[in-house]
């Protein structure tokens, strides 16, 4: 039986035919829609490499069944840069060398954007570290990640003030 769901992916509404109800949102993105920026590190919600924004909330895409997401909106790492302009979090990751191998990086960035939207961490590095602790980085780029999140937060705040 083929299911059809409607999914908004990075702002574009798509009709997705799903002949298989077992497909996770992560595998849908990676293997069927070929949006491979979102990574799979564990496939069971333990590493955060697959973090996307699902209806605006940071979510481990490996734990979500695609078939249950009819009508949902997904933002992935591919959907952040606008007109070739990096999102402030992306730029801050480069500036603070918040990445090494880069495999955890899409998940870290999506998680950081989710964290900033949650508005819980403020400019407290301790709370940023805590809030980013669902995203493992085996390379140990954490120092740069924390700096980048704080810096991006400041940049975004400045942008809002200016607007």
């Amino acid at each position: 039986m083929t299911l059809s769901i409607s999914l908004t992916v990075n702002g574009t509404v798509q009709a997705v035919a799903l002949e298989d109800p077992r497909v996770t949102l992560l595998d849908l993105l990676r293997e069927r829609l070929h949006l491979t920026g979102t990574k799979k590190g564990c496939d069971r919600g333990q590493c955060g490499a697959c973090t996307v924004l699902l209806d605006g909330r940071r979510t481990n895409a490996c734990l979500v069944l695609a078939a249950a997401q009819d009508g949902a909106s997904v933002t992935t790492i591919e959907g952040l840069a606008e007109g070739g302009q990096l999102h402030p979090v992306q730029q801050a990751f480069i500036d603070h060398d918040a990445l090494q191998c880069g495999f955890c990086t899409p998940g870290q960035i999506m998680s950081a954007i989710g964290l900033l939207a949650e508005g819980q961490a403020g400019d407290d590095p301790e709370r940023v570290r805590e809030g980013m602790s669902g995203n493992l980085c085996r390379c140990g780029a954490y120092a740069g990640i924390t700096e980048a999140v704080l810096d991006a937060q400041a940049r975004l705040a400045a942008r809002e003030d200016a607007a």
């Binding site: 949006l35 491979t36 920026g37 979102t38 992935t76 790492i77 591919e78 952040l80 840069a81 990096l86 992306q90 730029q91 990751f93 480069i94 990445l99 880069g102 990086t105 899409p106 960035i109």
Partner: peptide, 9 residues
């Protein structure tokens, strides 16, 4: 390779 890595490319 930073730009490629932060954009998922």
């Amino acid at each position: 390779d930073g730009p490629l890595k932060v954009t998922g490319q």
